[in-house]
Amino acid sequence: MELFVRLSGLLVVLLLGAGFRATGLLDAGRTARLNAVAYYVALPALIFVSTYDRAIGELLSLTLLGGLLFVLFATVGLAWLVHRNRASVGRRSVAVVQSYHSNLGYLGLPLVAATFNAEVTATASVVLGVVTLIQLPLSILLLSTLNGADAALGHELRGLAKNPVLGSLIAGLAVGSLGLTVPGPAATGLDLLGSIALPLALLCVGASLEVDLPSIDIGATGAVIGLKIFCMPALAWAVFSVLAVDAATFTAAVVMLGTPTAVSTFVFAVELGGDEEFASLNVFATTLVSMLTLFVLITLVN
């Protein structure tokens, strides 16, 4: 019951973000500033406090890495098979990318931190780092190749080196691996900053969602939902069960890969010639459906 109330609260915050955008309270400028606070302050703080007291060897293993790679690329392959015959190239490229590109940072890690213990949250931070390093350049490459757009892939890859999420992960793991200590007041302050990551992120996601009802392609959007929200976490469940990983690794991997399509895929679609309206609809639809499926996933792994 507590979990249901918590996820219902998350849905309310998400819808509040959409409502604030509709009424003008969260215009583009205010949303951008909230995004900056969430992305450059709250989320890095959450990642750092989740990992600074743990060595990298405790969290990252070849089994975890191999399982994540298998699930990600298996989902990419399935997405290509399902969407390969879409009439529009722009829609096909977006459908493939949005069937695997997970919202790990804005929704996944903050949700895990609010729901599970420190061990699961630390592992989820590593899942975030590993999958982001793969799915971000892969999505840019697919969209630019299929749509014939100039992706400036080198620029995007250089941007990864300045990514605050990855930087805070590396810093936290370095502190933990070297056995350094973080002063209590600093740790407490970072913990408080990290606690606002989820509500801020949900407001920003809600304020970014736009849906044009006449443009809905039920079949294509349904396929994206099926692959991203149902198939990917089910595949993760099967793979990590076979790999017989510990409970924290299993929980972190399944829940993180069960998150909806990332909002950033809409931005990539705009920049790289994808179907913008279709991309926006899929972000909205997968986010809405995931409120129910994440409740089921978290209940099952618990």
Rank of each mutant, 00 (worst) to 15 (best):
F4P: 02
L7T: 00
L7Q: 03
G9H: 06
L10R: 05
V12A: 15
V12C: 09
A18E: 08
F20T: 01
L26F: 07
D27N: 15
A28E: 15
A28P: 01
G29M: 07
T31P: 01
N35H: 12
A36T: 13
L43V: 06
P44K: 09
L46N: 04
S50D: 12
D53A: 06
A55D: 13
L60S: 03
L64S: 07
L64T: 07
G66A: 11
G66Q: 09
F70L: 09
L72T: 14
F73R: 06
V76R: 02
V76Y: 09
G77I: 11
G77E: 13
L81D: 05
L81W: 12
H83P: 02
R84G: 06
R91N: 03
R92L: 01
R92E: 03
A95W: 01
V96L: 00
Y100K: 06
S102W: 05
S102L: 13
N103I: 05
N103Q: 04
L107V: 05
P110V: 01
L111W: 06
V112G: 01
V112L: 07
A114L: 14
F116I: 14
E119L: 06
A122S: 04
A122G: 11
A124T: 13
S125N: 10
V126S: 00
L128V: 08
V130Q: 07
V130F: 08
V131L: 15
I134D: 14
Q135H: 15
L141K: 01
L142A: 12
L143Y: 03
S144H: 03
S144L: 07
S144M: 08
T145F: 12
L146G: 04
G148T: 10
G148R: 12
G154Y: 08
L157V: 15
G159H: 06
A161T: 14
I170P: 02
A171G: 06
G172M: 08
A174I: 12
A174K: 02
V175E: 04
G179C: 09
L180W: 15
P185E: 08
P185G: 11
A186F: 07
A186I: 14
L190K: 05
L190S: 03
L190F: 07
L192I: 13
L192C: 00
L192R: 08
L193Q: 07
C204D: 04
A207L: 04
D212V: 14
L213W: 15
S215G: 09
D217R: 05
G219C: 02
A220G: 14
G222R: 14
A223W: 05
K228D: 09
K228F: 08
P233E: 03
A234C: 12
L235H: 04
A236K: 00
A238W: 10
V245M: 12
T251N: 12
A253S: 15
V255R: 00
M256R: 05
L257C: 02
G258L: 00
V263F: 12
T265G: 05
F268C: 08
A269C: 09
L272C: 06
G274K: 01
N282Q: 10
F284P: 02
T287K: 02
V289L: 03
L292T: 13
F295M: 13
L300D: 07
V301T: 13
V301S: 01
